[in-house]
């Protein structure tokens, strides 16, 4: 199979979409969770009993990576890769690749932005632990866009007719 044939192969394109969803959103989440983790560690040196609260905030930017895996799974499931009978046209493959982009790209940026809000919220629980929920809510405002991107990806994947 030549290089160009591979690039236009439907299975290749859809698997590419699946891995992009995982890689890009996963990178964002990893960066984000790490960022909050650093801020949280600083807090724990002073207030070790706030571990649970800090962990909650650290978990928030982790969801984008999960949405990525979720999208990947839906794509792989759609093309039948998991059950063994793969038959995807170039068009379908390309469409699935495109469908993965919302989760991948929005996931990446929203994870990092959300992490910055979460890291700032660590400051909130350092001073006023009872206001944890307010910090979480600020972070959740950012997550909205990851959720919307996930929704777009899911609907696109679900709606595509794959003959398989």
């Amino acid at each position: 199979m030549g290089f160009v044939e591979i690039l236009t192969n439907g299975t290749f394109l859809s698997v590419l979409g699946a891995v992009m969803a995982v890689i890009v959103s996963g990178m964002g989440s990893a960066k984000g969770v790490g960022l909050v983790g650093e801020a949280a560690s600083g807090l724990i040196t002073e207030e070790s009993d706030r571990f649970g609260q800090a962990l909650l905030l650290q978990a928030l930017p982790g969801t984008q990576g999960i949405y990525g895996v979720l999208t990947a799974f839906m794509i792989l499931n759609k093309i039948g890769l998991l059950s063994g009978n793969v038959a995807v046209s170039s068009f379908e493959g390309a469409a699935l690749l495109i469908a993965a982009l919302p989760v991948a790209i929005v996931g990446y940026f929203s994870a990092i932005r959300q992490a910055r809000v979460s890291a700032a919220a660590i400051e909130i629980i350092a001073k006023r632990p009872e206001d944890l929920a307010k910090g979480i809510t600020f972070a959740a405002m950012v997550e909205t866009y990851a959720v919307l991107a996930l929704l777009a990806s899911i609907l696109a994947i679900n709606g595509l007719p794959v003959l398989g």
Binding site: I66, Y67, V69, L70, F73, M74, N77, L82, T144, V147, L148, L150, L151, I154
Partner: peptide, 22 residues
């Protein structure tokens, strides 16, 4: 439109469960 998150998060639980089971 913001309530579409009801669908997205509802689906997320189900799909991740399927991944785990598989």
């Amino acid at each position: 439109l913001s309530y579409s998150r009801l669908l997205a998060l509802g689906l997320a639980t189900g799909v991740i469960s399927q991944v785990i089971n598989q």
